[in-house]
Simulated scan of single mutants.
Amino acid sequence: MPDFTPDRPVEIPPQDPSKPAWPVTLLVVVCAYLLAAWNLYGAMISVAPFFGDQPSRDDYIQGGMAALTAVVPCVLLALAGWMAGSRWGLALFCLPAGVLALFGMSMVADDGDPSDPEPTRAVQAADLFDDLTHLNWIVAGGLAVVIVGVVWTRRDSRRSPRGRLPRDDATGSALASGVGVTGPRLRG
């Protein structure tokens, strides 16, 4: 049982080597590739020249922002995979995140149809929340909630074997009676 003193926090034992990390890595990498494919498809469709139309600058910005904001959930997926024990398998994340970032920056840099009223308009903060980016922000929010929950439960489980600091019944304060996880203190 780990020793707890107020001066030294509880040490976390290393990950159990008998538990394989590859299922978590596979799930996280597949989710990242699916998210990347969905965003690349949406971005390419938004600028596709259907029936001879030339896409506007707004279309390029919307497609580029969809690809750029997809990097946020990919990073959060990598963080969740890291917390679950994946290590080197997460290097497979470099490919979809890198492709998304490069593709998004390329699309944001393209000018639109010269006959548009604003063929070279600047990117604005509101473009981060266009229609194609909603899925990315929803996924990022869900992953952030999961990561905060995991960190919270791990932090609570480190305090003592039961997840809470031992309390003194009379005062309600932690460790006030001199009895800790390791046993009673000797008083002189």
Rank of each mutant, 00 (worst) to 15 (best):
Q124S: 14
C31M: 15
A48M: 14
G178S: 08
Q62E: 06
L35P: 00
C31T: 14
M83G: 05
R187E: 05
V28R: 03
W152K: 06
L68W: 00
G183I: 05
A80K: 02
L77G: 01
L77T: 01
A101M: 09
A97K: 00
Q54T: 15
V150L: 15
A80M: 04
I147C: 10
L40V: 09
A67H: 02
N39M: 12
F50Q: 08
G63K: 00
D7P: 01
H134R: 15
N39S: 15
A32D: 02
A170D: 11
R185P: 00
P119E: 00
T153A: 13
R164L: 08
Y33W: 15
P114Q: 04
P17E: 06
S86N: 08
C74S: 11
P14C: 08
V29M: 09
W82Y: 12
W152A: 13
R121Q: 04
I12M: 10
S157G: 14
E118V: 07
P6R: 12
D111A: 14
R164V: 08
D16I: 05
P17F: 06
V123M: 07
A97N: 01
V28S: 05
W88R: 15
G188V: 10
G64M: 09
A140S: 14
L128E: 06
P119G: 04
G85E: 05
S106K: 08
A101V: 05
P49W: 08
R162H: 10
I147V: 12
I61R: 01
V148M: 14
